[in-house]
Write a protein that binds this DNA or RNA. Structure first.
Lengths: 210, 210
DNA sequence: ATGGTTTTTGGACTCGATGGTAATAAATCC
DNA sequence: GGATTTATTACCATCGAGTCCAAAAACCAT
């Protein structure tokens, strides 16, 4: 049952580790941490009970690993959406659309592991991770705004921090709306509108090009 | 152990029904539905196991009742915040502040039963209720916008529906931020800023008074 | 008062589900 | 064939949901 030349001795595993973790993500996503029993992971990951414990550890450990991997993927996607387009508006729209798309994936329960399920996990390590991740997302958006200022696309007195926080808040709101079953199409439109909203000039300022 | 003159026969209850429900709210709030065992309710509500089943029913039934009561209180508070102030800006700020305050109550776990815990309950009735509640909240904000238009405070081409949705999204975002441990003071400031944001004139429109 | 009736109480009990471990078999390398 | 790692199955101990039953606390009638 093998091809690989440099194999690590002993009976080969019957599953792919990262593949199993992806499946675990789905399990937690759809059943929400507290709702997940070990047997759900056994069934969902395609890994025997014993192997699961020896390779991945207990439920909490698995969840932390899943969460970290998911956050990394999502963060990378967000950064790409944010820093690829030349125009700030497109960056924000892409960022928000990305959130919406992740939350309305076909064939998967709507919602988001980080926004909808992880916050309810009563664990200090999870909480700290979420705080850090949120701060990271915020910093990303802020940086994009500053880039826009440098590029002369946004006035230099643009309230970067405030608006960045509002972008994050709107993203969370959209994600929760998705979780409640809002259709992707409508949410994508909301994402566009949200991007426009947070770029509006403050009162009393001459509007920028747009 | 009695004062009431017209008593309903039989041994009197040892607890106050609505008081017990309030305590149940705290239990679900802090332990998040799936994390709640019957014994948690028994301990938290101050009601014996047997009485709990015979008076309130099982966990799901209790949660639904708790949720309905909570939604009613919260909806009333939101409506009051929204329709008491004469200026739209103050209405929105009050609405959002109200959400923040509810989510950062002293001595209680931060967050919100409707925003943070109920969406994860895997139950069609709960989901439907949440959808309806969200629609209700949205309608409230829309109505306030229309009132503002009637009063001449807002231009008649104000994108009511879009902005109302954004108010809701921002409220959700603020609530989730609270759940993650953001301090009330900062969130209250965010609420104010969010209220200003959603009232900004669209691009290409002459700014209204403000 | 006193006993009957009604409702609540508190504890005991059952039984299935679940987390975690141990023991044995299987697959691979050396 | 021996060593090493994984897979499979069985097992145990605990926890939790829901029910049953006897005792308690009130009311009512006599």
């Amino acid at each position: 049952m093998v091809i690989n030349p440099s194999r690590p001795r002993g009976r080969p595993r019957n599953f792919d580790e990262s593949e199993a973790l992806k499946k675990a993500t789905q399990v937690f996503w759809s059943k929400s941490y507290d709702g997940v029993a070990i047997d759900d992971l056994v069934a969902g990951m395609g890994v025997g009970r014993q192997s699961l414990y020896s390779v991945f550890g207990d439920k909490r450990t698995i969840f932390l690993r899943v969460l970290r991997a998911y956050a990394e993927r999502k963060g990378a996607g967000a950064a790409k959406a944010l820093f690829s387009p030349p125009a700030v508006r497109d960056s924000l729209a892409g960022f928000l659309r990305h959130a919406v798309e992740a939350a309305t994936e076909e064939g998967s329960v709507p919602g988001c592991l980080m926004v909808c399920v992880a916050p309810l996990v009563d664990d200090p390590e999870v909480r700290q991770f979420l705080k850090d991740a949120a701060a990271g997302g915020l910093a990303l958006v802020e940086r994009r705004f500053y880039d826009g200022i440098s590029a002369g696309e946004i006035p230099s007195d643009f309230p970067v921090t405030t608006r960045a926080r509002q972008v994050i808040d709107l993203a969370r709101g959209l994600t929760m709306h998705a979780q409640l079953g809002a259709p992707r199409k409508a949410l994508l439109k909301d994402a566009e509108e949200a991007a426009e909203l947070v770029l509006l000039p403050r009162r009393g300022n001459a509007p920028t090009e747009g």
